[in-house]
Amino acid sequence: MARKLMLLAAAGSLALLFGAYLFQALGYAPCKMCLWQRWPHFVAIAAGIVAIFAANRVVALAGGLATLVTAGIGLYHTGVERKWWEGPSSCTGTSDLSGLSGADLLSTDMAGRVVMCDQVSWAFAGLSMASWNAILSLALALLWANAFVRLSRN
């Protein structure tokens, strides 16, 4: 049963990543923090692949920690979007342009691709993609934790 929970949780991370890339393909470019939220999902998916061959507490812990990390980044991102706290200056409205050269400022290479982390580009039921990632990733972390507990009983 623990292996099934781990595979279900890894499949959940795969589904969230698929959704993120689908939104990107539909024209919703990700900001820097959106990209940060993707990396832990890759770790959770890798843990799920390992669980196919070796479902143990270390793998369950790795998957659980990965989903908690992405949930934490999602919560932080949500706070930045809602102006509860400041985000990284490199992707929020408080960016300092003093480190850029004149050529950088005049370059059209980045035109249309810069997405601010403090702006919500899509929301459903009043929650942004970052918020949904945080909520769903916490649910996935619970699956990983359940698997860990089951493996600890054996």
Score class of each variant (00 low, 15 high):
residue 13 S to D: 08
residue 128 S to T: 12
residue 39 W to R: 13
residue 19 G to T: 05
residue 129 M to S: 10
residue 119 Q to V: 14
residue 36 W to I: 13
residue 22 L to Q: 10
residue 94 T to G: 13
residue 46 A to K: 07
residue 38 R to L: 13
residue 63 G to P: 04
residue 110 M to E: 14
residue 66 A to C: 10
residue 51 A to C: 08
residue 36 W to V: 14
residue 35 L to W: 11
residue 144 W to K: 05
residue 61 L to G: 05
residue 88 P to Y: 12
residue 108 T to I: 06
residue 103 A to W: 02
residue 30 P to Y: 10
residue 15 A to S: 11
residue 50 V to F: 13
residue 134 A to L: 05
residue 37 Q to R: 03
residue 136 L to T: 14
residue 40 P to M: 00
residue 32 K to Q: 12
residue 147 A to F: 01
residue 25 A to G: 06
residue 58 V to A: 15
residue 6 M to G: 00
residue 111 A to N: 13
residue 119 Q to E: 13
residue 101 S to W: 02
residue 16 L to T: 08
residue 85 W to S: 10
residue 151 L to M: 09
residue 41 H to E: 07
residue 134 A to G: 08
residue 4 K to W: 10
residue 119 Q to D: 07
residue 144 W to G: 05
residue 135 I to E: 10
residue 34 C to K: 10
residue 121 S to N: 07
residue 123 A to W: 03
residue 16 L to F: 08
residue 86 E to N: 13
residue 20 A to C: 01
residue 123 A to Y: 04
residue 25 A to K: 00
residue 14 L to D: 00
residue 120 V to L: 06
residue 8 L to I: 12
residue 93 G to Q: 14
residue 110 M to N: 14
residue 1 M to R: 06
residue 1 M to N: 06
residue 118 D to E: 03
residue 140 L to H: 06
residue 72 G to P: 07
residue 56 N to M: 04
residue 40 P to V: 01
residue 69 V to T: 12
residue 115 V to F: 03
residue 112 G to I: 06
residue 89 S to W: 11
residue 19 G to S: 09
residue 64 G to S: 13
residue 56 N to I: 02
residue 27 G to H: 01
residue 125 A to G: 10
residue 1 M to T: 03
residue 142 L to I: 14
residue 113 R to A: 11
residue 18 F to T: 15
residue 50 V to I: 15
residue 66 A to G: 12
residue 122 W to C: 07
residue 118 D to T: 01
residue 83 K to Y: 10
residue 35 L to A: 15
residue 104 D to I: 00
